[in-house]
Design a protein around this nucleic acid. Sequence first.
DNA 1: CTTTCAGTACGAAACGTTTCGCCATGGGAG
DNA 2: CTCCCATGGCGAAACGTTTCGTACTGAAAG
Lengths: 339, 339
Amino acid sequence: MAATYKDIRRLTGVSLATISKYFNGGNVIHNNRVLIEQATRDLGYQVNDVARGLRSRRSMTLGVVLAELNSTFYTTIISSMEEKLREAGYGTIICDSRGSAEAEAEAIHFLIGKMVDGIVIMPVGDEVAGLAAAAARGVPVVTVDRAIANAAVDTVVIDNRAAIASAVDLLVDAGHIDIGLLAGPDAIFTMRERRLGFREAVKRHTGRLPRRTFTQPDPVSVQGGYQGLRRLLALEPRPTAVVCANYEFTVGATVAINELAADAPVPAIVGFDNLDLARIIRPRPTLVVQPVAQIAVRAAELILDRIASPFPLEPRSVVLESELVVGDPATYAFRGGQS
Amino acid sequence: MAATYKDIRRLTGVSLATISKYFNGGNVIHNNRVLIEQATRDLGYQVNDVARGLRSRRSMTLGVVLAELNSTFYTTIISSMEEKLREAGYGTIICDSRGSAEAEAEAIHFLIGKMVDGIVIMPVGDEVAGLAAAAARGVPVVTVDRAIANAAVDTVVIDNRAAIASAVDLLVDAGHIDIGLLAGPDAIFTMRERRLGFREAVKRHTGRLPRRTFTQPDPVSVQGGYQGLRRLLALEPRPTAVVCANYEFTVGATVAINELAADAPVPAIVGFDNLDLARIIRPRPTLVVQPVAQIAVRAAELILDRIASPFPLEPRSVVLESELVVGDPATYAFRGGQS
DNA sequence: CTTTCAGTACGAAACGTTTCGCCATGGGAG
DNA sequence: CTCCCATGGCGAAACGTTTCGTACTGAAAG
């Protein structure tokens, strides 16, 4: 159905080798160039990347495995990354692991079968099952957002401890002492780091470790943030401020606060990610904002670099800084002790 | 580097044809089956989909072209669709056209080169440039969310007129007469349909066509919704209610309303999409909610069906209903005439 | 007037599968 | 005991490229 080099040869008399050279930017004598271009137009010819990939062993396709397609944070990263990769000529196959390590391993298997030239992964847990398989086939891997225990892969993360510390600092400055944390399980890199950062920061300020933390098993759930905030508020003494360790928790906590009885004391709150949120919620919340576009761009750079490099590179690790976007003072002010 | 059939043959003595049969689920005598399985394990063998795709002319990969990866509405659809497609054994290559018809055509070109077995597209405008090329190569196409003028492709859309009408009905019932519309340009199918539905509904109720509509050239922009609402409110007489024709506009309009002076009359508002929004904004807004998961599933079904069908099918069109999720009465109540 | 060399062109052999046509085997029907 | 048919196996030829080694050309160098 679709035209091939052979059709072009038939129309032009030029050999396959020369046609290949033409389509790969090589030098071709003017006359042949014109002939090939004419034939290409006449036939509506388009290079078959599958055949090309088989022979050249480069599929010009990258795989992306992410923990949750339904999360703004991840899709924003994908969006920037896809743009960058396409500019470099690469297509992007996206797989959603839905937070399951098993699905993640399957996805990697799948991508290897598709002969992707590299894999960008936002890992579910601390171990990624398919990593050995990828390494065995020389498929480079870059992890994003979450680091992997002692694996020789490139990594892009933010400084999670500093991120949380900046939130704690603000709250302490505002007069809060009893601060709660709403985070996911320690099995998740970001949650563990943020919890550690939280403890460090609280200890640094108060000399004591915090007690008020709530761990929600499902990290990417609005519902979890909702319940978590309610649990925290049920504690005695009740925390006067809460830090939410990711976007979904921030949304859930906001919902819960919205539902508080009018006379109930509203806790101060600092959330995570997604600046848009700051614009639609009143009073304007304070958020730890990650440099999403940068994360994406750096990840793309790392993987492209590694693919291009003729010899194995040392594993590299990029750590980016987050920013605390301070909202309406009413949302983080200290309004006196517990009720 | 990676093992091939030849390696398996070397270890087992079984012919390539039989090995192929095994990996395609054919009948293989018990002894051979065991041998092949053993060798597969020993070698860490995995089928090369690129070679398979070249020979069998089925790449088991689908392309998705969407107008904006940075839009919850689209990513939610992608998420459900990817799951469905993967279950059927297909990988998904995602391309973001960023609202540009040119990028859209490029994306289709790119996908055709990758020998995708089908393309799901959320078109930018009323014409899709690459459609002919896809048809010429027998690559089936399904459009989602937006229909395309007289093209022989399958389509999944919602009943946009009814969707908007349900919003207008609610507002009219609440006592509003002077209702504004915040929509994007008519070049976009959904925007055109929703505007038409709006006019029809208003006319049906009031006997007159509405005058208060604002068209924002950039349809997927929060900023546009923000400006649009301010423009509408600057009109004399001022509309007492506003319908927002998509998600981004709804967010933008909400921001604008949040910024209204405390004493300024707040217009009633009905928005579009993304139920999560309803949970974090207080008072709870009224939203036209599209059946996102269903849209995705139906689109996946259509494309898989068409790929599987040995003979060309009639173009099919699926129209789904949206749902009006009514929020806090305060957000749509009529509070008297214009100021 | 030969030698050399840069610039191109070409044929043929890959790349790792699937698929086609043909052959061997063996058990049941006649 | 023969014949048939179902089952499974095999070799070889694709699929549409890239790439390797070789060969041609004409102009510059000797």
